[in-house]
Simulated assay, not measured.
Amino acid sequence: MSDTGAIDPNSVARQSRDKAIFQAEENYKSALNAAAKTRESAIQDAVNIKVEAVKQAQAALDLPKKRLNEARDRIEARLRKRELDEARRNKEQILIKAEDTRVKAIKQAEELGKRMIAEADETHRRAIQQTYETEKKMKREAEQAIKNQKEAARNKAEDKRKGRQRSEQEAAEAKIRAQKIAVAERSAREALAKNQQKAKKKKTEPINIAKTPAQPESAVKPITREIPDMPSWPSKVNQPGPAISRTGMIKLTIVHRDVDSDHMVDFENSLREIPDIRIVMVGGTAGEGIQIIVSSEKSVVLSDILRQLPMVENITDRPANILVKLKQAVIFESNA
C-alpha cells in the first residue's frame, strides 16, 4: 500500500505467494506427519496382523496336537479298559482252573491215599508171609549147614587119615629111594674112581713115535686110538628123534671110539651143575660104552640141555636111554 492509500498489486501478490508457500509448507508438514502416522499405524497393524497370524497358526498347529492327544487318551483309555476286561476275564479263568485243579488234586490225593493204604496192607501181609517163609528156609538151611559141617568134618578126618597114610607111605618110599641112591652114589664114586685111575693110567702110557726129521704140517695127520668093541654111533646122527621129557632114573650112554678123559671129566662136572639132576652111578664096559645113571625128581627134557654143553658133539634121544657123542680127542703123529 502506498502513501497515497492505493493497493500495490505486487505486494498483494507477494503476500499471497508467501501465504500460499506457508500454507503449502504447513500442508506438506501435515502430510508428512499424516504419512508418518499412517506408516506407523500400518507397521503396527502389520505387526498385529503378524502376531495374530502367528497366534492363529500356532492355534492351528496346537489343535491337531490337542486332538491327537485327546484321541490318544481315548485310545489308551479304551486299551486300558480292554486290558482290564481281559485281565478280569483271565483272572476268572485262572480262578476257575485253579478250583478245578484243587478239586482234581483232592480227588487224586484221596485215591492215592486209598491205594497207598491198600498197598501198605498188602506189603504188610506179604512181609508177614515172607518172614514166615524165611524162618522156615533159614531153619532148613541151618539144618543142612549142620549136616554139611558134620559131613565135612568126617571127610576132613578121613582126608587127614588118608594123608597120614600117604605121608607115611611116601616117607617110607623116600627112605628106600634115599638108601638106594646112597648105595648107587657110593657105587658110582667107586666106579668113577676106578675109571679115573684107568683113564689116568691110559693117558700116561707112552706112545712110541719113530724119530724122523722135521716135516711140514701138511705131512702131519691126526690119528685116534681105536677101541674095536665099542658100539657104533647111529647112522642118522643129524636126525635125532623127538625130545622126551623124563623123570626118575635116566640112563646116558657115552658112545665114541676114543673118549677123552678130560672131556669125560668136564661132562660129569657139567651134569652136576644142571638143576634137579644128580649123578647116581658111572660105569660101563668096553662093549656097552660108558654108562651114566642120573636121577631127576622133576620132569626135564635132558637131551635139549645136553646139546648145549660145549664138549658134546651130538645127542640121540631114545626111549630106553640117551646116546651122547662127545667131541673126538685128536692125537697128532708124523708120517713116517
Rank of each mutant, 00 (worst) to 15 (best):
D85R: 04
A98P: 01
M281T: 14
V265Y: 03
Q196Y: 05
K139F: 13
E40P: 00
A329C: 06
H256F: 00
K160N: 02
A243Q: 02
A120N: 02
I227Q: 15
E288H: 15
M1G: 13
K114G: 00
N208C: 07
A286T: 13
K114A: 13
R126C: 06
P242A: 07
D3K: 06
V259T: 10
R14N: 14
V220F: 06
E185G: 10
G283N: 15
Q129A: 14
R186M: 11
M281D: 06
I250W: 00
I21Q: 12
I279M: 05
D100M: 12
I146S: 08
Q165E: 15
R177C: 13
P213T: 08
E110T: 06
A6E: 12
R189N: 14
K180A: 11
M1I: 14
L95N: 12
E168F: 11
Q15P: 01
A336I: 04
R186E: 07
R80Y: 03
N48M: 08
D8R: 11
K107A: 10
G283K: 02
K29E: 12
L95E: 14
A98Y: 13
G283M: 09
T212R: 10
V265E: 11
E135F: 07
A243F: 01
I322V: 15
K160V: 01
K202F: 08
E119C: 08
N195Y: 04
T247W: 03
I128Q: 08
A210S: 11
L306V: 07
K194A: 12
G289K: 02
A36H: 10
A142K: 14
V300S: 00
Q165N: 13
R125E: 09
Q291E: 04
S295I: 10
V301D: 02
S218R: 12
E190A: 08
R225Y: 04
E158N: 06
I244V: 09
A336N: 12
I250P: 00
K236L: 09
I331P: 00
T253K: 15
P64W: 01
